Each structure stands twice: as structure tokens, then as C-alpha cells.
Amino acid sequence: MDLHTVTEVISPAAPGAWRPGDAWLGGGTALFGEPRPHLRRLLDLTAAGWPPLTFSDDGVDVAATCTIADLAEGLSRHGIVRQCCHAFLASFKIWNVATVGGNLCAALPAGPMISLSVALDGTLSLVAADGAVRRVPAAEFVTGEGTTVLRDGEFLRSIHLPSAALGARTAYRRGSLHRHGRSAVLLIGRAEPAGGISLTVTAATRRPHVLRFAEPPHADDVAAALDRIPAEQYVDDVHGRPVWRRHLTRHYAEQIRAELVA
């Protein structure tokens, strides 16, 4: 979709260039997906030249401008990364353009990069218009459908995924109304070193929910934790009704619990 009100593209985006009516531009697959009549300029982050992936002893930093193709290739040895990349159900053309940061900032419930970042205890680096940096847990970044903690002029610089979480045993379940449909439910479980598990609920709910169990949980423990997710948190749209999403969430959660506890 053309953004007819945009009159200028700043590339590369200069520090401190942001002003009302601007939007940060990554891959653009989400930005160009719907009318945005309030926009006047685009600030191009892709021209900044950030390396897609930066490895260190304590994990990997994923640039916000890292494409899905680069992520899938660079972290291909981690099954959960491959699974979340394929949750896009997108062609290679989308994989080579869509960015990890763009998927996070779009804050759609079905965003698989949200699921991945939250499930792996990611930490997001956010840069303000004046250059100040703050770090936010991935689980706290998305606050609702299409809303995040980003402030005016702030952009997402990178996502740090710790090595301990990347190397952990995981279990993945995804459901939709049809084979190539948008994710209606996406759950990721992760085994913890002390024997417990963490369970991340996304796609079914308006924002991510993380359930943590210090010890191997019983089925009743998981069911009780899921019951604490408010009913109004479950998404209601053409991709699935809340009662169905909630049922499938409970069904997949029990499968994940049994798999990881075993």
C-alpha cells in the first residue's frame, strides 16, 4: 500500500532527526500494510548498517533490522528459531524483507518474533530521540494489540537472546483455523535448569503471558495458572473466537507440560 502523505524519506536516519509525523522504517512489510494518514516522513533504519547478528559468550544480539531470512540462517541450529520463523507462513520474498524488529513493533498478537523473544527471555534495547538507551524485558514490550511501551521518537535497536535460553530444551505448539492461516494460538515451553518450566502464551491473547513453574508442574498447576489469564485477554477476530482460542491454549499447554516434564 502506498503511503500518500509521506513526502520525504531520510536515509540513513540521523540521530535526533525524529519529529511528530515521522515513523521509523525497517523492512516496511507492516508499516505499508495499512493506511497511515498521519505520517509525513520515514526515517530509514536499514541504512544504518547494523550487523544482523552479533554473537558473544552470553548470547546473541539480534539487530532490529535483521531479516527473517538472516535470523533463520544465522541461528538455524536452534529448532525453536526455525519454528518461529516458519510461523510466518510467508514466501521467501517476505523472509528477505521483513525484519525482526518490525514484527515486534507491529505488536500483532500473532507476531512470531514476539513469541520467540518472550519465550527466550529476551531483552530489548530501545533508543530515544536524544540517544538515551533503556532496556526492557521482551515480556513487557507489547502491552496490547498494536501497542507497545515505545515512547515518541523511540526506536528498537536490538534484541538480546541469552545463551542459556537459546540452548534450553523447548516445546512448540501452533494452531490456526486452516493450514496456511494466521496463528490463532502459539505456545512455547522451555525447560529450566532447576527442573521447572516456563510457558509462553501468545497469538491467542492480546499480549504475551508467561507462566513460570519453579518445579515440574502437574496438569492442575498449569490449568490453574492459565485460569488467571483474564477472559477479555483472548483475541476475538476472524481468525478465531475467544472460547476456541482458550480451549486450544489449554490443550496445547498440557501437551507441552507433558513433553517437557517427561
Score class of each variant (00 low, 15 high):
residue 43 L to T: 11
residue 59 G to M: 06
residue 28 G to W: 03
residue 49 G to E: 06
residue 64 A to C: 05
residue 42 L to F: 03
residue 15 P to Y: 07
residue 32 F to Y: 13
residue 8 E to T: 13
residue 44 D to K: 08
residue 53 L to T: 03
residue 24 W to D: 07
residue 6 V to I: 09
residue 34 E to Y: 13
residue 55 F to N: 08
residue 55 F to Q: 11
residue 41 R to C: 11
residue 15 P to Q: 05
residue 53 L to S: 02
residue 12 P to G: 04
residue 5 T to Q: 11
residue 32 F to C: 06
residue 53 L to H: 01
residue 62 V to D: 05
residue 46 T to N: 10
residue 53 L to I: 06
residue 25 L to V: 03
residue 5 T to N: 12
residue 56 S to I: 11
residue 70 D to L: 05
residue 55 F to H: 14
residue 39 L to P: 01
residue 6 V to L: 04
residue 6 V to Q: 02
residue 5 T to A: 09
residue 17 A to S: 15
residue 56 S to K: 14
residue 56 S to Y: 12
residue 13 A to E: 03
residue 37 P to Q: 04
residue 48 A to V: 10
residue 15 P to S: 04
residue 11 S to E: 05
residue 23 A to N: 08
residue 10 I to V: 14
residue 30 A to C: 13
residue 45 L to G: 00
residue 45 L to W: 04
residue 46 T to K: 12
residue 28 G to T: 08
residue 40 R to P: 01
residue 42 L to C: 00
residue 7 T to Q: 12
residue 53 L to R: 00
residue 69 A to G: 10
residue 23 A to F: 06
residue 58 D to A: 15
residue 30 A to R: 14
residue 16 G to H: 01
residue 32 F to H: 02
residue 30 A to T: 13
residue 38 H to S: 15
residue 19 R to L: 14
residue 8 E to D: 13
residue 61 D to P: 02
residue 70 D to R: 10
residue 7 T to Y: 10
residue 63 A to K: 08
residue 43 L to S: 07
residue 42 L to R: 00
residue 24 W to T: 02
residue 43 L to A: 08
residue 18 W to Y: 11
residue 31 L to E: 03
residue 44 D to N: 07
residue 50 W to R: 13
residue 34 E to K: 15
residue 48 A to S: 12
residue 22 D to Y: 02
residue 27 G to K: 00
residue 49 G to L: 11
residue 37 P to C: 06
residue 38 H to F: 14
residue 8 E to H: 14
residue 24 W to E: 09
residue 26 G to T: 02
residue 43 L to H: 07
residue 14 A to T: 13
residue 24 W to M: 03
residue 38 H to T: 15
residue 18 W to M: 06
residue 30 A to S: 15
residue 19 R to E: 14
residue 44 D to R: 07
residue 57 D to G: 13
residue 29 T to A: 02
residue 7 T to E: 12
residue 13 A to F: 01
residue 9 V to L: 04
residue 39 L to G: 02
residue 34 E to L: 14
residue 15 P to L: 05
residue 18 W to P: 02
residue 10 I to K: 09
residue 15 P to G: 00
residue 64 A to H: 06
residue 22 D to K: 00
residue 59 G to H: 07
residue 70 D to P: 04
residue 22 D to Q: 04
residue 9 V to K: 02
residue 6 V to G: 01
residue 5 T to P: 05
residue 41 R to I: 10
residue 26 G to Y: 03
residue 14 A to K: 11
residue 26 G to P: 02
residue 32 F to T: 04
residue 54 T to N: 06
residue 38 H to Y: 15
residue 46 T to Y: 03
residue 54 T to R: 15
residue 52 P to H: 09
residue 14 A to C: 08
residue 51 P to R: 03
residue 29 T to K: 01
residue 59 G to A: 11
residue 47 A to S: 13
residue 43 L to P: 03
residue 60 V to S: 10
residue 22 D to V: 03
residue 20 P to G: 13
residue 20 P to R: 13
residue 7 T to K: 12
residue 34 E to S: 15
residue 20 P to Q: 12
residue 32 F to D: 05
residue 67 T to K: 05
residue 6 V to R: 02
residue 65 T to L: 02
residue 29 T to F: 00
residue 43 L to V: 07
residue 7 T to D: 10
residue 10 I to E: 15
residue 28 G to P: 00
residue 51 P to A: 09
residue 62 V to Q: 09
residue 52 P to N: 05
residue 24 W to K: 02
residue 57 D to Y: 09
residue 57 D to K: 12
